[in-house]
Structures are given as structure tokens and as C-alpha cells.
């Protein structure tokens, strides 16, 4: 059991140990879809969806694996859960809200390979979070991912018109910006109160 309070878990996963900027999870989509604000926030919302649902399912299946003494199947189980969650959500959203489905478009299937999703499932197991703690952690971490993605997309839209040397365009520029953002997020480090 982990005794961290819910609010400290939320703040810790949202800002202090932001998934993108200090734990380095989900860097590929962070570089890939942060070009435009409109796509960035949609990707952010889909990720919040998927991470929260898959975290609940991963918690339940981990309980089952522990009672069966089959912990060695953990990685395989989690990855299957994530892939099927993404598929289910895709079908569910298509049925209930075609508008949202059209907005999210290709971002939903892409989330299967987002390592932040598997990261949440693995971290909540390793830290022995309770059910409530797991859900709060999942929401905080995925909101942190969305936050970093949105900030980066806004900066990149602003830089679109500025004069950048040719060789720095593309990934190198994004990584430099991420480095500076990550330094800024280090300023949150004192906030946790020993979380």
C-alpha cells in the first residue's frame, strides 16, 4: 500500500513529474502531433480518455494476476488491455458521438503505441496504488501529457513565421524547446511537500 494523499498524487503527476517533460514518456506523439493547436488538444483529450479507462482495467487485471500467481504475464496482459481499450473506445465513440469521432480521427489508433499509456499501468502497479489513487494518478498523468502537448503546439505555431536556420528546423528545434520547457517545469519541484 502507498500512503500518498490523492491531491499530492495528482499534483505530482500533473506538474512535478510531468510525464513528457521529466519522466520522458510519450515523446513520439509529443514531437509528432504538436505542430498545430487544433490537433494537439484533440490528441490530448483522446489520451486522457484512453489512459483513464486502461488504468482502471489494468488495476482489475493486476488483482486477478496476483491471485493467480501469474505476475510474469503482466507486460503481455497490459499491452493486450491497452490495444483492446483503444479499439473499444473507437467503436464506442463512433456509435455515440460521430462528431467527436470525426474530430479525433486517426489519433485514436495511434495511442496504442503511446508509451505513456503502458507507463501509467506499470507505475501504478509498481507503486502499489489503491484503486482511487490509480484513477487520480491516471487522470493527472494524462492531463499532464495534454498540457505539455498544448503548450508545445502553441509555441510551435508562433515560431512558424520566424526565421530559423534550415538545419535547426524540425525535430532539433522541438527538442530544444522541450529542454527549455522542461527547465521551466523543474520550478515546480518544491511544490510536492514530500510526495
Amino acid at each position: 500500500m502507498n500512503h500518498a494523499s490523492l491531491s499530492s498524487i495528482f499534483l505530482d503527476s500533473l506538474l512535478i513529474n510531468n510525464f513528457v517533460l521529466s519522466v520522458f514518456l510519450g515523446i513520439c506523439p509529443f514531437i509528432g502531433v504538436s505542430g498545430k493547436f487544433a490537433t494537439a488538444w484533440r490528441m490530448g483529450i483522446s489520451v486522457i480518455f484512453v489512459i483513464t479507462v486502461s488504468s482502471i482495467l489494468a488495476y482489475a487485471s493486476n488483482l486477478l494476476l496476483v491471485t493467480l500467481h501469474a505476475e510474469y504475464l503482466r507486460i503481455i496482459t497490459f499491452i493486450v488491455i491497452i490495444a483492446s481499450t483503444v479499439q473499444l473506445l473507437e467503436m464506442f465513440i463512433k456509435k455515440t458521438s460521430p462528431l467527436l469521432f470525426r474530430a479525433l480521427g486517426i489519433y485514436l489508433p495511434l495511442i496504442t503505441t503511446n508509451c505513456a499509456v503502458l507507463g501509467v499501468a506499470l507505475f501504478q502497479t509498481a507503486r502499489e496504488y489503491s484503486f482511487a489513487q490509480s484513477v487520480v494518478f491516471a487522470v493527472g498523468a494524462s492531463a499532464g501529457f495534454a498540457l505539455a502537448l498544448v503548450i508545445m503546439s502553441v509555441i510551435r505555431e508562433r515560431l512558424e513565421l520566424s526565421d530559423i536556420p534550415d538545419m535547426a528546423r524540425g525535430t532539433a528545434l522541438v527538442l530544444m524547446l522541450a529542454g527549455i520547457l522542461s527547465m521551466a517545469f523543474m520550478g515546480f519541484a518544491g511544490m510536492g511537500g514530500g510526495a
Partner: peptide, 12 residues
């Protein structure tokens, strides 16, 4: 963490 981003950016 910032060092990781900056080092990779420099290598690229």
C-alpha cells in the same frame, strides 16, 4: 531531464 532534451537536440 532538460539535459537529455538539449543533448539530443545538439546531436541532431
Amino acid at each position: 531531464p532538460p539535459g537529455g532534451f538539449l543533448t539530443l537536440a545538439t546531436w541532431l
